[in-house]
Write a protein that binds this DNA or RNA. Structure first.
Length: 490
RNA sequence: GCUCCAGUGGUGUAGCCCGGCCAAUCAUGCGGGCCUUUCGAGCCCGCGACUCGGGUUCAAAUCCCGACUGGAGCACCA
């Protein structure tokens, strides 16, 4: 039946089902978390975890928890809490619950105490270098077999701020084949004031402690993380075992390698402070806000990340693929305008003035624009003497001479076919009168100056437009003397 | 160096678990054509890959071993 009416629908359907991403071990409900460190806004790298979590949560009607992991006061940027939420909202990710780790310090302390009481953790006062030497040989340090009472006493001292240079270590396997797993630290002292809690705490949990504790208490069922966390998963397994907790399902995906863009939050921040970048949304950066400013749609990023998926092999991020998806989205809504970069004056002799009305979009009704031709226009190409050109949508001309910055040409004919026969080029043009000074900021942050046609002045900020043959840009700012756009892609 | 993981066209992806229907999917890219007064979009055609070597098997992209390549981890960061 369906085969007769619409066979292509069937084909499409099976394909879609095949490519769909699935989660293993889904019981009644999935709870997943996205856990960034609030050191800056979200970038392309983060968007992968955020999107995949959101996708699965929506697919299985579960819960998305945003957990801000701010247990290293040195790596917290106060504005980042807000920025991360904005970025997620922009990506259309539904945050079901928000948790901030610095609000949960007492919880971590309690659980640490329990581990000490059970004899699974101890306070270690060894010099880090010395400990490492012992650890690498698989030899326990002398702190390891202190009594529970002593450890609790020392732990209290740590909290009281009367013990320096101590850490709490988890007893794992001192001969574990991965040395970093051997009695790894779970708490450390850090005196740097915390942007949220000030100097209230000086003892902070390390990730491999706070993460499993929170994952368990929040009821996380599936954890999606990069394979750089594989060893951490192994470490965290000890915590689950000691508390006799059931472990969530872990999925480790390959590293997403993104070339040609700055993604390191600390490097970006440094660059901003030095004035090298104009802010978190500088077009050279890989932050979501930079992409937004350039006119990349959140759906394009979302689809891009789903396409990449969760396979364990590393993947190279392809800007081309992202652009292709974005182009597909914005093509139908982007109004067309003429824009000439590096403008040169062109005087056309012997042509009658006239007014043209062109469509804003080749196949959708987005209105018309008006071009008044009065003999003098801007063009961006270098024109050759004696060659025929066509001012697009207008008429054929032949270049006569170039005098300084001004090109002189003579009107030749109307018919497009003549141009074809003479193998002439079609060029863009903008009437000199009423030309709108326009700056396009490219992906390197360079300003490219030129003129757009008169009606371009009616665009709204934030609108996406296509400068014909030039590329898609987002209108960023309108000033009295010019309009500023950010370049998206061809 | 040690430990672990992975290798499908330029890029991303499907297939690999449960060998045959895979002279390998889809997208992007590239080349060509149609259309078009955009070198855009759309439509059509084409290009292009199972890292290599052994083994198991009637049969291997799919299973096993080795090599090579790439990656991750080896912190009082996350």
């Amino acid at each position: 039946m369906l085969e007769e009416i619409a066979p292509e629908m069937l084909v499409e359907d099976t394909r879609e089902r095949k490519r769909e991403l699935v989660l293993k071990n889904v019981k009644d409900r999935v709870v997943m978390r996205f856990a960034p460190n609030p050191s800056g806004p979200l970038h392309l790298g983060h968007s992968r975890a955020a999107v995949l979590n959101d996708y699965f949560v929506k697919k299985y009607r579960g819960k998305f928890i945003l957990r801000l992991e701010d247990t290293d006061p040195k790596r917290v940027l106060p504005e980042a809490y807000e920025m991360i939420e904005e970025d997620l909202e922009w990506l259309n990710i539904g945050v079901g619950e928000k948790v901030v780790q610095s609000d949960r310090m007492e919880i971590y302390y309690e659980h640490c105490e329990r581990l000490i009481e059970m004899g699974h953790a101890y306070v270690c006062q060894c010099d880090p270098q010395e400990f490492r030497v012992l650890k690498n040989q698989g030899i326990p340090c002398r702190c390891r077999d202190r009594s529970v009472e002593e450890n609790l006493e020392l732990w209290e001292k740590m909290l009281d701020n009367s013990l320096e240079g101590a850490v709490v270590r988890l007893k794992t396997d001192i001969k574990h084949k991965n040395p970093s797993v051997r009695d790894f630290p779970i708490f450390r002292i850090e005196d740097t004031p915390h942007p949220k809690t000030g100097d209230r705490y000086t003892v902070y949990p390390l990730m491999n402690f706070s993460v499993p504790v929170d994952d368990y208490l929040l009821g996380i069922t599936h954890v999606l993380r990069g394979k750089d966390h594989i060893v951490n998963t192994e470490k965290q397994r000890y915590i689950y075992q000691y508390f006799n907790w059931e472990m969530p399902e872990y999925i480790h995906y390959g590293i997403l390698k993104i070339e040609g863009t700055v993604l390191s939050t600390s490097k970006m921040y440094e660059g901003i402070l030095k004035g090298e970048y104009r802010g978190w949304d500088d077009p050279r950066l890989g932050t979501l806000r930079a992409l937004r400013r350039r006119g990349i749609r959140p759906e394009a990023i979302y689809r891009s990340m789903l396409e990449i998926g969760i396979k364990p092999a590393d993947v190279k991020f392809s800007w081309e693929n992202l652009y292709a998806i974005n182009r597909e989205i914005i093509d139908r809504e982007a109004k067309r305008f003429f824009f000439v970069e590096n403008p040169k004056r062109l005087k056309v002799l012997g042509a009658e003035p006239r007014t043209l009305y062109l469509r804003m979009h080749p196949d959708r009704d987005l209105g018309t624009r008006e071009l008044r031709f009065e003999g003098e226009v801007y063009v961006s190409d270098d024109l050759e003497v004696n060659r025929m050109y066509r001012l697009m949508e207008l008429c054929n001309i032949v270049v006569e001479r170039v005098e300084g910055d001004v090109i002189y040409a003579r009107y030749h004919s109307e018919d497009f076919k003549i141009l074809r026969r003479k193998r002439g080029k079609i060029i863009h043009w903008v009437p000199v009168k009423d030309a709108v000074k326009t700056v396009v900021v490219d992906t390197e942050g360079r300003e490219r100056c030129g003129f757009a046609e008169k009606d371009f002045k009616n665009v709204n900020i934030d609108e996406l437009v296509q400068f014909e043959r030039y590329g898609f840009t987002r209108v960023d700012d309108k000033r009295e003397d010019r309009i500023v756009c950010y370049f998206a892609h061809k």
